[in-house]
Design a protein around this nucleic acid. Structure first.
Lengths: 118, 118
DNA sequence: TTTATATGTTACCAATTAGTCACGTATTTA
DNA sequence: TAAATACGTGACTAATTGGTAACATATAAA
């Protein structure tokens, strides 16, 4: 488990990879679609980053014919968040109350009619 | 700001550095005390990690004579936590409710007589 | 069937990183 | 004052990493 999270930390250490995760938050994308978002990088460079994310279990890739659909897996992120919040909770009780507000807003948002059906 | 957090992400990507932060959670330590906790590393190796943590603003170091006292700065960690929670809140509303519980426990803990005076 | 599209793999390179070593300075202790 | 303690800095090395190039396979479209 701890070894797994080491890969996750390493994967998250690169800003390009964090940006890729940001893209995937909006929904799954083909590799080409992701490559297009990084015109300053070759497609091999982008794919290399995807490899790292995949090995860290942050991204799942499935095939649709010749296309590869990449989607986000938030579980490792969640594990890191939860473990770190536990670790540092004594330091930022006030900030955790802030997190509580965020959580409540998110829960309230969750109960609204979902826009994702539109 | 985003650049600052890039340094933080990079600093957190190494397990030894995360362990150093774990040590400092219990309170400030001299450099030597930290070095002792990593018998598999030379003191230069440990100090190099401390340099990285310092540049990422995760550790503050002050001098007391010939001793250097290193202490944890949780602000960058908090910033990362908060920003990531915002980013991924739609994905884990249920887990955020869990975070809410943690936050409430921490707040309740905070109101007890502090054991730190003992 | 041929051509186009989507992606993969290996090799290579420059930069960065994690670690050690040699030499050094500053402060404290005996 | 000399010796011990605590830490610093630059140089070096091997490994890793972020990136590109060359060559390739698989699938879809014409």
């Amino acid at each position: 488990m701890s070894g797994n999270l080491d890969h996750v930390w390493k994967a998250l250490s690169d800003s390009t990879r964090r940006e890729i995760l940001d893209l995937l938050r909006d929904g799954p994308r083909t590799t080409s679609e992701i490559v297009e978002q990084f015109p300053d990088l070759s497609r091999f460079g982008v794919m290399k980053h995807l490899d790292v994310l995949r090995e860290a279990n942050l991204v799942n890739t499935r095939s649709e014919g010749r296309k590869r659909i990449n989607s986000l897996n938030v579980t490792p992120i969640r594990q890191i968040m939860e473990r770190w919040i536990h670790k540092y909770e004594a330091y930022w009780a006030n900030s955790l109350l802030r997190v509580k507000e965020v959580a409540e807003e998110a829960a309230a948002e969750k109960k609204k009619p979902s826009r994702k059906k539109a």
